[in-house]
Nucleic acid binder design. Sequence first.
DNA 1: TACTGCGGATCTGTGTCGCT
DNA 2: AGCGACACAGATCCGCAGTA
Length: 337
Amino acid sequence: MKEYTVKDIAKIANVSPRTVSRVVNEEKKVKKETREKILKIIKSTGYQVNLIARSLRKKTTGILMVFVEKNAANYIGNFHNVFIRFLDSEANRLGYKLIVSKSSASKVEENKHDGFYLLKNGFADGAIIFDTREIDRRIDYLVERDIPFVIVGRDNVYESTSFVNLDNVKAGYLGAEHLIKRGNRSIQFFLGDENFTVNQDRAKGFIQACNDYHIKSELRHIDYGIMNPKSAYKKIKNILEEEVPDALFVSGDQRAIGAYHAIQEKGLKIPQDIAVLGIDNIPLSEYYYPALTTISQSVRKMAEGAIKILDQQLKDPENHKSQRIIFQPKLIIRDST
DNA sequence: TACTGCGGATCTGTGTCGCT
DNA sequence: AGCGACACAGATCCGCAGTA
């Protein structure tokens, strides 16, 4: 099938290519009849704008690259899923398209198939990075090349970077405090990869609350490396062989489902025998049985904030300054605690 | 003849300017 | 207001002049 170009449409409509371009881009100052005639031809020919040519001329693509950590990429959990959905709808609202790509905090640019290669070569205008670590090569890379980006998480290395983040120290604190206040004394805390700043911060808040409420150090345990429901299942299963803690605090609602399985398999009741508390408030969590008590992050507002910051950077690169928005976590009490 | 190096044309869509 | 002419984005291709 023939691929039509503006020239073809212009010829058929007996106008200049520039006029067709005006119609396609919904610019004003085109007579109603002319516009309708051109739209009709566009419809019948199936003409579509050549995005590469447009990007060439405009020097922007309207594409934003979303990077999730490579280790997490084979496990993009429900939280990422929900977050990216909000990012996408906000991006679309402002006229951007999103592309999700895997990446690694330890190295970039080794793979010609990944998003950094595309970004560097002008196939995207800016980036959003998830799952940051204290030392994150991806951030170095973007800063060095002066590529606009926003972090979902935090960064303490550069002053110039922008991010949206949950107050994760507070989230850890809030969770521990809630469990302690409901009488739990032995608490197990499951966290993901220790290198992620989010987990470091949550651990910090957890320990702080335990100290403030004088929970003995032998009664509180932190386990890192709980990356998915399977590892949560395995870990709590092992723990339950030895002893039953009063409460299990799981960073990530989705992982809590694995813990539920092991606990119920053992014949224990939630929350009577062991309380379970999550973080994220993913949409599924209220349908767990019993419904999961969790710590909510305002994902929609964070996503909107991230896109807004990036949009400002792209529209006015000269005057952009670092913007950092910290969102407060909120305890959602349901039936599992 | 075989090859190198260079300038200009090409691709498509749009910014700018100017004409009616 | 409504439209067209021209120039241009950047990589690549093509043809031609010049050299070995």
